[in-house]
Nucleic acid binder design. Structure first.
Lengths: 233, 233
DNA sequence: GCGACAGTTCGGTATCAGCCGAACCATCCG
DNA sequence: CGGATGGTTCGGCTGATACCGAACTGTCGC
């Protein structure tokens, strides 16, 4: 336990892990650049993270692509971030276009987060398609129908008839969005439909023109795309 | 995020936090003894943990009682422990009566864990009283009936009709047990009935004579109380 | 083969954070 | 009041570890 936390408890390593929480695999060089440390230092850090099985790596051509080793690790990082967000006084970080983009829409390992993630969760709850509390979530019958129409693959993993969806506390919004199988499927499908696009080296997500229309028509979500985010309260 | 993880990433502090995960509030002296550090060092650590809102403190007479600040923090520690347990090669820690007791039955913040916790979860699942997957859990109608008969208070927090129960990955058993509202209620009721007893300064839980009978009759659980735990695979 | 690029290893430096004991403050109890 | 107990603050010590540059390995593409 100590070792794991200590690994996350270093700025350079935490930066790398955060970047990888975007869900994309990144190379050692990219990670060293993001963390603003020399390649040699980064190499050492990555070695430790691999050793502790927080990261996994695959060699492709002459690059080594690092990624979060498992959903369990992702969940842990989520929960650490959630606690850290609580602790931080309400708005300490300076506003910047970068931060605003992240607050707007970003990926969280394998699902959507930020205002968009929360908006989708809210919309589905409002329509009675899912039930979501801080202890758990579930897709209703009508919700399963709707999501299947949307194009999501909803095989419940185990034998259980129910399709659960895990709530994930959003550090920027302090509200829940949808993680787990359902969250991953929604994100996958949005990509597939060309509604959303990811940018390399950042967790921020772009909403395309068709995406704006689609999100409005299907989910009933209208996005205020200018950085007029309120953050009130 | 870094700060929070760094706080947990120190042996002395992690020991204290682990002890407090037993659910009981402990004094500074007790914590310093458990972590085997001087009072002055412990005082410094506790100050930091309070500052970061990982712990909360209440003064009672001339003692200061420290406790985990919130369920969110508890959840975070759980998840760190879960990852750490995966990483650790299967059975590195030496067997001891202490460890065996902990593996047998212990508290995890506000609910039961260890073989007993898993056994209860298994029993409830087998009888169709709850549904439990790695993404979430829920009490069925018959389960709600059963648990109410048992004496648990089952008010769903929000308006939603459903009663969720959060699954918590057990580091010693590598299986899920029941956390959240339901888990807390079961533990509370077991204490109330005198089935279980807690020991000061340890997370290990004692099963009383009546507890053995009650667990067998109500939940259908027979406990092998000798330390013949298998841990096979 | 030969630059160019990706990544690791090694040696040396320096900072940081944990640790303790002693002194100190506060509360309790006889 | 005075000794005992619980806890914090302070100053000084020390070990751990993050950091870098330079040298090295290996792979790619021309």
């Amino acid at each position: 336990m100590v070792e794991v936390a200590a690994l996350v408890g270093d700025t350079a390593r935490a930066t790398m892990l955060s970047a990888l929480m975007g869900g994309q695999a990144l190379t050692a060089s990219e990670l060293s650049a993001l963390a603003r440390i020399s390649k040699s230092t980064a190499s050492g850090h990555l070695k430790k993270l691999i050793g502790a099985r927080l990261l996994a790596v695959t060699q492709k051509r002459r690059n080594r692509y690092y990624r979060i080793a498992s959903p369990l690790v992702a969940k842990m990082l989520e929960s650490i971030k959630a606690v850290a967000a609580l602790e931080t006084p309400p708005r300490y970080q300076p506003r910047s276009i970068q931060n605003d983009r992240l607050r707007m829409a970003r990926t969280c390992y394998d699902h959507l987060a930020g205002q968009l993630g929360v908006a989708i969760a809210d919309a589905l709850v409002a329509k009675g398609y899912i039930v979501l509390t801080d202890e758990g979530g579930e897709v209703t019958d009508s919700g399963a129908h709707f999501l299947r129409d949307f194009g999501a693959e909803l095989r419940p993993k185990s034998r259980s008839r129910r399709i659960f969806c895990r709530p994930c506390l959003d550090w920027s919004e302090r509200r829940y969005h949808i993680a787990g199988l359902i969250g991953a499927e929604i994100w996958r499908r949005c990509l597939e439909l060309g509604w959303l696009q990811r940018n390399r080296n950042t967790r921020a997500v772009q909403v395309t023109r068709t995406g704006q229309i689609g999100l409005r028509d299907v989910f009933g979500i209208t996005l205020k795309l200018d950085s007029s985010s309120s953050r009130s309260a």
